[in-house]
Structure formats: C-alpha cells, structure tokens
Amino acid sequence: MVKDDESLLKEYLKGDEKAFSMIIEKYEGKLLNFFYKMCRDGELAKDFTQEVFLRFINGAKNLRGESSIGTWLFRVATNILIDHKRKFNPPKIDIDESDASVSSKAEYLIEKRELKDEILKAIKKLPDAQQNALMLFYYEGNSLEEIGKILNCSLQNVKNHLFRAKINLAQILKEGKNGV
C-alpha cells in the first residue's frame, strides 16, 4: 500500500524503520535521476542521493509543516549541487575549431550546462510556493491535480505558480546576464 508523505514521516519519527525504507523506495529514483541529469556522473549521483537521505535522517524532525517530503529532499538536493559546483568548477572543454560540427556540439553542451547551473541557483530566489510547484511537477513527476491537493490550492493556481516560476526564472537569468 502506498502511504502519503505525512503518515510516512509520522511513522518514521516514531522510530518505524519500514517507513524510512518506504521513503527511500519512493524517492531514490527521482533523486538519482535529478542528480544524474544535473551532473552527468552516475557515481556522483549515488553519493549525492545518499547524502540527501543522511541529511533527512538527521533533520527529519524539522520537516513538520513542509508540503511534502519530496519538496524538502529536492531543496536539500539543490543545496548539495550548488555547494558542489561552488567547490568544484567544471573542467573547461577545449573546442577544436577546425571541426565545425564538433565545435558547435560542444558549444551547445556547454551552454546547456551553464543554463542548468544558472537555473539551479535562480530557483533559490523564487517564492516558496513557486519552488514547491516546480519541484513537485517536474522533479517528482506529480500531476497538476495531485499538486493541488498537496499545496491545498486549485488547478489554476498550480498552473499559475508554474508559469510565474518560469517567467521569474527568465527574468532572474536575464538580470544575471546583464549584471544587475
């Protein structure tokens, strides 16, 4: 039986090991996918996912009031990635300009990676409701109706949060580029 996050958290805080096992089952794949897409390194993705769960073990009691365990885990995941990128700058890729196709592909990949990093940092500047909506919809893969139930708001409101989040992100990225 699939339990909701609230009851899983309650049971875990009471000391139920099965609840923790179910939390891992529910989120390990999503977190691994998230980390893998963000850093393209399978081993690093595993280490980061483990780190997220370790932080959950130590900080679960502070989770009361969060909309879902997932939003908390992804918030932690974002922090871990930002810290990691701060400590280890990605290696520079030498582009062989004589090969036009390789050069344009490499440029594209670099741009994609930069955009990913910029979005990651910019998410932290969004209001909580917009951050939660983004994480629940894109990272966790919930439907709009499910998010409405979790965030206790209407379908239109969920769409609005998602839309405003993307508009705000575009604005933050533009300001970043213009050095505002």
Partner: peptide
C-alpha cells in the same frame, strides 16, 4: 528554454535504484 530544461526531468521518470549496499547503510 526554461520550460524545456524542466520538462526533460518530467519526461524521464525511469526507475533507477540505489545500490543495495548504500540502502542497507542508510537503514
């Protein structure tokens, strides 16, 4: 561009798991 970046995560919800060793360590 931003929509595409996020949609990429939603498209791929393939089920991958942590190694058993890591899971037992966490438990």
């Amino acid at each position: 561009e931003i929509q595409n970046e996020f949609a990429e995560f939603r498209l791929d919800q393939s089920k991958i798991n942590l190694p058993l060793k890591t899971k037992s360590y966490l438990l």
